[in-house]
Amino acid sequence: MKELLRTEGITKYFGGFRALHNVSINVDEREVALIIGPNGSGKTTLINVISGTLKADSGKVFFKGADITNQEPNLLYHCGIVRTFQTPQPLKELTVLENLLIGAINPGESPWKALIYRSWLKKEEELVERAIKILDFLKLSHLVNRKAGELSGGQMKLVEIGRALMTRPKLIIMDEPIAGVAPGLAHEIFSHILVLKTRGISFLIIEHRLDIVLSYIDRLYVMFNGEIITEGRGEQGIKKVLEDPKVVEIYIGE
């Protein structure tokens, strides 16, 4: 399999606190990689560094072989990386439909082109249609015109996932995508992730609910105190990781 994302020795300090130490991970094309670890182990910091929200103190991030270390998030989007947030970040005063439409760029967002309706109308029709399809899948159709600020926490998560699906990204980074989502729907989200995987999208996911996600992932990393303590790939590899006494002690044994 071809490598998509690779980090090399990422280190990040917050003042004197070492949040990440020498973290190296890989995500291949058409792969779902999962990072687990107790609270405060650096998972979110790691994906913030990868997605450009935080700057690494040292180490490198490569995407499709190109060095993308410390790039601005808006440039990473154009490389094909999108992300969702741990605490949902809905655009509260905007409707659910509008929230999804922000997921994809329309040429009409330039004020000069905005005045020439035909330069963006076709794209807009296309994006609205895509948004409606995604909302159908996420079972949010009945909320299409509601303000995102009025939704429940779980629904907000779904809107975020919907927004990430609006583009055709290469890599979707998700921070706890199913926290607060009912198990049935959580399975549905992950089965959709599998479908997207076959279409060539890779995923880097942080999630606590191993029971639900285990059957959907290809690669597993375990983080503790800002370091990757063990990793495994494929069904056998993941099983080995989960039987690792260190992992049992710090994560499952809690």
Partner: peptide
Amino acid sequence: TPYGRVLKAMRENEDVVKCFG
């Protein structure tokens, strides 16, 4: 237009708008 929408999105949350390119 999409321009007006992206302005409102920017008002609501700059970081999201940035993460979406």
